[in-house]
Design a protein around this nucleic acid. Structure first.
Length: 928
RNA sequence: GCCGGGAUGGCGAAAUUGGUAGACGCGCAGGUUUUAGGAACCUGUGCCGCAAGGCUUGGAGGUUCGAUUCCUCUUCCCGGCACCA
């Protein structure tokens, strides 16, 4: 029965052969053209892989196999990120000890991974829970500490009451735990942090050199969130004018500071306890009461937009040294301690939140941005009113007629005058007074108006292209500003544009010693410790005596010592009470036999750190480990310098976009510091990162929690790995993912059988059959297209091209000569490795098809003898004629041919063409 | 709100420089073969229309002989950030 492809038997046969002959084991030492093709390793949080995982691995594997056929020495490793909260939670769920479950998961994941036919180098795997691996994860921690990048701090941290551990900021999504979805609480705990913020500038700067997708780059940029501003110091005085202290406010808009009318402190601000000592008791009590209430509001509610502003007056004032004016000092929960300095200077005229607060507490509103100098107002001709509008307003308004517009140029400097002028103008035009307020985005009774939107709507409703009526729209059209304009009522800044005013004001404040420029980032330090069991113990020792004596490995962290390198790894002991408690105390803290250890400083009894490190630390460096496995220095260094120089950075990294800010940011940080410490000679681990799409099932991302996972095992059994691989890749471009459907799967199974039949019948005929030209040409075309499409990961169109080829063969006798069949098998090999290996062997090819060279195509075959030429009349298709390539390039000949076309003549009859457009070899277009 | 990405038949999608919109596949309809089912093969298949022809790439405008592709505006969907001062 050679009509049906016997997938099970063939897959098993070749998987064994590849393994026996070490086809996929990379020659790390001798490779001439190293290509490190890496995919994000899976974390075994479920019983096995689903087709979503398989999609990602297959798409990466096809690229690796393609590169190998192109002559690269491809290294494609796999491992398991099984040390951490996801795997631990899964172990709890199935009621197994994490140690036992890790063994089970490993077995099952590796079984499945070997079934999907990827060219993994099984001689070099990484399991993050192996002591031989986490020894170096701990080493990394030790290095961080020794270089002053690991520190302890008592901080309000995110605490997940369900997972019973702290979470990094990155692991909190909308106030909820990334893992379990429970609301996250704040808890004050002493924790270990990595000083990633010290590298915020570097992380941002290097983004420019990365060949990543926009989506991922902008996510990283947003997360780093660079802001340039100034910290302004305001003296605080009481009603008698006596100085009480000072408050520092961060702002990015110091140019509006003449319009500042109040200052607000976050409820957590440390200055509150200072001021409470000097103010009247009832005021202090009111503040305490407010703060107590504010703390009860969940962080989710607190950051909710448009919430009614609340607050309490301290009865004190901040002095705006620019004006000498006293600004009342408030406490309000709309100010967050973690943002800026936790104190905000309120400029209600130019900030929505400040405005809302000022309204609530009846605080003054001072406008300091207006329009000055020349103002160009453009009105489409059809709405132009008579020129008498020039009489409407202040002296220098005049009307200038343009081709399609009227420009009004005002030489006035009061924003209010301009506004009334504008209002009148638009009222006259078309009776449409659509601007009901202030031109500069200032405050009106109705609130803040963003003029840009209004004007855009105005023109859009009338189907007018703004660019056309006013070409310089972008530069001079006032409506395109949103709140930016020219400074007014601000002394030395008057008349300056916002962009100029900001640095001028910063200079001025700094010169007077009232402020200091700062660059702030949204990025926070990486919270590293976890009060959990299943992770690498943090390799630190704490000695109470040394701390009391002010001694320690580092003067800034008395009492703390790193575990000496020769004592690493600090092995995670097997314990029975591994579940986390509600108290924030780690499971290991209940095991004296674990934590009691001599102090490396004084030799007295000290205690090991009992927290473990975050999973993301395990995966922040794993890519450095793979190539070095099996090298001489494997056991005395995390990675071999020679091997690393040859194989890193990773040539091509592929993974899910969901790791845009977590794993990718941490890996970049770790690589940057390893370079700084002299261990590496590059800063960026992944110069090329490809974010693959997600597999959707029934409209949702495939995930265990949604209950829509599809296990690849049954499909592999039914249709074979190759058919499943092809189907997954055929759904759409690899970057886009796709919707998994059974019916599509069957269609691909059909094609695999068609290929099988085409090949086996070609082998039966096997004599020197004469191939039709069409098929020969088509093969060359297909080799070219499959190569190009595979390069850019458009596997779907590469597969479509191969389908077209088999259709073409079927239409022409259904058989191929041996050399043509072999070429076709090679280009199909990355997609269907087993099927092609079998057919290759039957065609007499030498093992293995996967180490052959990608076939060359001959350009001369790509030139068509006859081409279709399109005849258009007024740009509309009227006829298509097939003519030889030479005539098709000759305008006279094409004209003659088109004259003879009945279909075209029907539309040309009696009309004289005004113009004839001719594109050689493509089309002729008569304009009549 | 800000920053990214996207929208094309009944469905997944294609169109690499502005030049035949819908390749390839699924589904559907009809047929051949088969005791039946399945499988395989053949034909058709964007929409309206008997046809001639007209319409059609989320929507509105524009540039062009010609726009899925370029420009302006807009709606909706997906992702990231967010009382960020």
């Amino acid at each position: 029965m050679s009509f049906v492809y016997p997938h099970s038997e063939i897959e098993a046969k070749w998987q064994k052969a590849w393994s026996d002959k070490k086809t996929d084991v990379a020659d790390i030492a001798n490779a001439k053209k190293p290509f490190y093709n890496l995919m994000m390793f899976p974390y075994p949080s479920a019983e096995g892989l689903h087709v979503g995982n398989m999609y990602a691995f297959t798409g990466t594997d096809i690229y690796g196999r393609f590169k190998r056929l192109q002559g690269f020495d491809v290294f494609e490793p796999i491992g398991l990120d099984g040390f951490g909260i996801h795997s631990e939670n899964y172990a709890f769920k199935v009621g197994k000890h994490p140690v036992e479950q890790a063994k089970r998961s490993e077995k099952n994941f590796y079984r499945q991974l070997s079934l999907i036919g990827c060219m993994y180098d099984w001689s070099r795997t990484v399991q993050t829970y192996d002591p031989g691996y986490y020894r170096w994860t701990q080493w990394l921690f030790v290095q961080m500490f020794r270089h002053g990048l690991a520190y302890r701090a008592k901080a309000e941290v995110n605490w997940c009451p369900s997972c019973k551990t702290v979470l990094a900021d990155e692991q909190v999504i909308d106030g909820k735990c990334e893992r379990c979805g429970n609301l996250v609480e704040k808890k004050a705990l002493e924790q270990w942090f990595f000083r990633i913020t010290a590298y915020a500038g570097k992380l941002l700067e290097n983004i420019g050199s990365l060949k990543w997708s926009e989506k991922v780059l902008s996510a990283q940029q947003n997360w780093i969130g660079k802001k340039e501003g100034i910290n302004i110091t305001y003296p605080v005085v009481d009603e008698k004018g006596e100085n009480i202290g000072e408050v520092v406010c961060f702002t990015t808009r110091p140019d509006t500071n003449y319009g500042a009318t109040f200052v607000v402190l976050a409820p957590e601000h440390p200055f509150i306890s200072v001021l409470q000592r000097v103010i009247k008791k009832e005021k202090a009590d009111a503040i305490t009461q407010y703060i107590t209430k504010a703390k009860k509001v969940s962080s989710q509610d607190r950051i909710a937009h448009g919430r009614k502003k609340t607050g309490v007056d301290t009865g004190l004032w901040c002095v705006n040294r620019l004006t000498g004016q006293k600004m009342p000092l408030y406490v309000s929960d709309f100010v967050v301690m973690g943002v800026g300095t936790g104190a905000v200077v309120g400029v209600p005229a130019h900030d929505e939140r400040d405005y809302a607060f000022a309204q609530e507490f009846h605080l003054p509103i001072r406008k300091v941005i207006g329009w000055k100098g020349e103002l160009h107002i453009v009105i489409p001709k059809q709405f132009v009113i008579d020129k008498s509008i020039s009489n409407l307003t202040s002296p220098q308004v005049f009307v200038e007629e343009r081709e399609a517009t009227i420009a009004v140029v005002c030489g006035i400097d009061s924003s209010n005058e301009v506004i009334s002028c504008m209002q009148e103008l638009f009222r006259k035009s078309d009776g449409y007074a659509y601007i009901d307020g202030d031109m500069s985005g200032l405050v009106t009774k109705e609130g803040i108006i963003t003029q840009e939107h209004d004007i855009a709507e105005f023109f859009s409703e009338r189907h007018i292209n703004v660019n056309e009526v006013w070409p310089a729209y972008k530069d001079s059209y006032p409506f395109c500003y949103t709140g930016d304009g020219y400074v007014v009522d601000s002394d030395f800044l008057n008349g300056k544009a916002t962009e100029q005013a900001i640095p001028l004001m910063m200079d001025y404040l700094e010169k007077n010693g009232w402020g200091k420029r700062v660059t702030s980032y949204h990025l926070r330090d990486w919270l590293i410790s976890r009060q959990r069991y299943w992770g690498p113990p943090i390799p630190m020792i704490h000695c109470v005596k040394c701390e009391a004596a002010g001694k320690g490995e580092r003067s800034d962290t008395p009492g703390w010592y790193t575990v000496p390198d020769d004592q690493l790894p600090v092995e995670l002991p097997y314990i029975e009470d591994y579940k986390p408690g509600d108290d924030g105390i780690a499971p290991l803290a209940k095991h004296k036999e674990f934590y009691e250890t001599p102090c490396p400083g004084c030799g007295e009894v000290a205690a090991r750190e009992t927290d473990v490190s975050d999973t993301f630390l395990d995966s922040s460096w794993y890519f450095l480990r793979y190539p070095s496995i099996g090298s001489a220095s494997e056991n005395n260094a995390p990675f071999d310098p020679k091997v690393t120089k040859k194989w890193l950075p990773v040539t091509m990294y592929t993974g899910g976009a969901e790791h845009s800010v977590l794993h990718l940011m941490y890996s970049r940080f770790v690589t940057i510091v390893l370079k700084e410490w002299g261990y590496l000679d590059f800063e960026e681990p992944f110069p090329n990162f490809f974010a693959h799409g997600l597999v959707i099932k029934e409209g949702a991302k495939m995930s265990k929690s949604k209950g829509n996972v599809v296990n690849p095992d049954e499909y592999i059994k039914l249709y074979g790995t190759d058919a499943l691989r092809l189907y997954l890749m055929f759904m759409g471009p690899f970057s886009e993912g796709g919707d998994f459907r059974d019916s599509g799967m069957e269609g691909m199974h059909r094609w695999v059988n068609r290929v099988w039949r085409m090949a086996t019948s070609s082998l039966e005929v096997s004599t020197d059959i004469v191939m039709s030209d069409i098929v020969v040409k088509n093969l060359h075309k297909t080799i070219k297209k499959v190569g190009e499409d595979t390069s850019r990961r458009h596997y779907n169109t590469a597969i479509a091209a191969m389908m077209e080829f088999t259709n073409c063969v079927a239409d022409n006798n259904g058989t191929l000569t041996l050399p043509m069949l072999k070429d076709f098998l090679v280009i199909l090999a990355p997609f269907a490795p087993h099927l092609t290996e079998e057919l290759w062997a039957r065609a007499g090819g030498e093992f293995s098809i996967h180490t052959q060279a990608w076939p060359k195509y001959d350009d001369t075959y790509l030139v068509e003898q006859s081409v279709p030429v399109v005849i258009q009349v007024n740009g509309k298709l009227r006829d298509t004629v097939h003519i030889d390539i030479e005539s098709a390039s000759d305008q006279k000949k094409v004209e003659a041919i088109s004259q003879a076309s009945e279909k075209a003549q029907k539309f040309l009859a009696g009309k004289k063409p005004k113009k004839i457009i001719f594109v050689a070899g493509k089309l002729i277009n008569y304009v009549v």
